[in-house]
């Protein structure tokens, strides 16, 4: 059980670890007992409340799956539009034209710092809802997708930019020296590598989008979370409904995170990009001292190339 911070334990330390293990288990047991006792007091552990989730196909068909499909629909549309938005404005920020660069920068920075819910509320209650755009039944979907696109598109634009910045200088120089123009170097040499490098981060961003579709509740979008109150009033089991929906979200997002780390390993091991593999969206706060250096979590530059520290420390995947 040695890791970076701790030496290999001797007999005394092993004893201490055993005591802490028992304490940890006791803590977990106490918390679980408190939760269950509280739920039992409120009558929430009655089998009748949970049974519909197992026996009632209608509950899944009419509510959970219908809601999940709406959630996935909004998330999928948002991720596609956000990727387009992100590539366009990311390239805009890398443009050699000062005006394009400035405008793209302002757009990206603005939409990154405005809360998604603020945009959703404004778009829905201000325009899409009252004008029934594009139609009465899809106005909330349109507001959800547009708000998520603007925010996540800006995040992806930053990903594109830091992906290109993380490529070695030689890539651009090689492109220019074989006679490609500045923009075709960007399009044919730099961007494909940057897009490969940001694939894991893009999948992680899908987790963010999936979670944020739940904000649609405020503007009456019938997503998965919205079905909780419907299930609650139909079967009078609000608490179990929230628990089950929470579990669906956690499971889905956890799987996506696993896919992201798989993809990351694959890209890394096959050497599909000359630059660093980006695993998370770049911060609003830039962490590195050198301007133009991307913030790459859990990585640092060692002797001119980026090495992954998380592979060496052993407490990464437990």
């Amino acid at each position: 059980m040695s890791n970076l911070l701790f030496d290999a334990p001797g007999p005394k330390a092993r004893m201490r670890h055993r005591i802490l293990t028992v304490l940890g288990l006791a803590l977990a047991a106490v918390i679980a007992w408190l939760v269950l006792a509280k739920m039992k007091d409120a009558g929430q552990l009655d089998g009748a409340l949970w049974k519909p989730f197992v026996t009632d196909g209608e509950l899944w068909r009419e509510y959970l799956l219908a809601g999940l499909i709406n959630t996935l629909k909004a998330a999928a549309l948002s991720v596609v539009f956000a990727a387009i938005f992100g590539i366009v404005f990311g390239m805009g920020r890398l443009s050699s034209n000062l005006v394009i660069r400035f405008v793209s920068g302002v757009v990206v920075e603005f939409f990154r710092s405005v809360p998604v819910l603020l945009m959703m509320i404004f778009l829905f209650f201000g325009y899409f809802g009252p004008q029934e755009f594009p139609s009465a039944s899809t106005s909330s979907l349109a507001a959800v997708v547009l708000a998520l696109t603007l925010y996540n598109g800006s995040v992806i634009a930053e990903l594109v930019r830091s992906g290109v910045f993380s490529l070695p200088k030689g890539q651009r120089e090689a492109g220019l020296s074989v006679g490609l123009s500045e923009s075709s170097t960007l399009r044919t040499v730099l961007l494909p590598q940057a897009l490969t490098a940001m694939l894991p981060a893009l999948i992680s961003q899908f987790v963010v989008i999936l979670k944020d579709t739940a904000l649609g509740v405020q503007i009456t979008y019938p997503d998965l979370l919205n079905t909780a109150s419907q299930i609650g009033s139909r079967y009078s089991n609000t608490v179990p409904a929230y628990v089950v929906i929470g579990l669906i979200f956690v499971l889905l997002n956890y799987l996506l995170t696993l896919v992201a780390s798989r993809v990351e390993k694959k890209i890394r091991s096959k050497g599909m990009t000359a630059g660093a593999v980006l695993t998370t969206a770049p911060n609003l706060v830039q962490g590195d001292a050198n301007p133009g250096e991307p913030t790459v979590h859990g990585m640092e530059r060692v002797g001119g190339r980026i090495s992954d520290l998380t592979q060496r420390t052993r407490f990464e995947d437990d």
Partner: peptide, 26 residues
């Protein structure tokens, strides 16, 4: 999460995985 005790690490990782993957709205 960084402690040398396995159980505590699992509890910490469980907390992070559950609450980071649940929508705040929920």
């Amino acid at each position: 999460r960084v402690s040398p005790v396995g159980v505590l690490r699992i509890l910490g990782a469980g907390y992070v995985n559950i609450f980071r993957n649940t929508p705040l709205t929920l």
